[in-house]
Design a protein around this nucleic acid. Structure first.
Length: 164
DNA sequence: GCCAACGTTGGC
DNA sequence: GCCAACGTTGGC
């Protein structure tokens, strides 16, 4: 499903969160500026979490359902694909009785904040930018983890005022 | 708050 | 295996 990597190759992703639930600032203020990216219950996003994302990959942190919806900063994968334990916890909001700990359905990664954008890169701005017209964010609807190309990565970082 | 776009579920 | 009903995401 995922092409083998060249040695040392870094890939890029975009992860979505509603800032009312967990914002980029929340991540910056978390212990070690790190959190587990749990509770994803969509099989497409799960495949990226389980198989696609590797330690050292970088992610845009996108605020969905926000005013404005925008990319707020950059984070890094610090632990790759492991079972999402919230699926096994009957008291958890996203408990999934069908997920068997011996063969888990859902996976998560840990991400660490790297840098906040100096200026938000908003959804309208992304839509209006010809260089970003092919972003998976725009083409694949309602997926909470999507890939980003190296060109898109560099372009958005420049817009955000971050050198990464 | 509305609703379009999808993914998932379940009856048949 | 088809497909209608339902649930969720997320822009507007």
């Amino acid at each position: 499903m995922f092409a083998p990597r060249a040695k040392g190759e870094r890939r890029y992703w975009l992860i979505k969160s509603e800032p009312d639930v967990f914002s980029f600032d929340d991540l910056m203020q978390a212990p070690q500026r790190t959190t587990c990216w749990d509770s994803i219950r969509n099989s497409g996003a799960r495949n990226f979490l389980r198989d696609g994302m590797k330690v050292g990959d970088r992610c845009f942190y996108y605020h969905s359902n926000a005013e404005p919806s925008a990319i707020a900063g950059v984070c890094e994968v610090v632990r790759e694909g492991y079972p999402d334990h919230t699926a096994f916890d009957p008291s958890h909001e996203y408990y999934d009785e069908k997920s068997d700990p011996a063969m888990p359905t859902w996976f998560m990664v840990d991400v660490k904040a790297v840098a906040a954008f100096k200026t938000l890169v908003t959804l309208p701005q992304i839509k209006a930018d010809p260089a970003l017209a092919e972003m998976a964010l725009l083409r694949v609807s309602r997926l909470s983890v999507v890939p980003v190309t190296a060109d898109e990565w560099a372009h958005v970082c420049a817009l955000g005022g971050v050198k990464v």
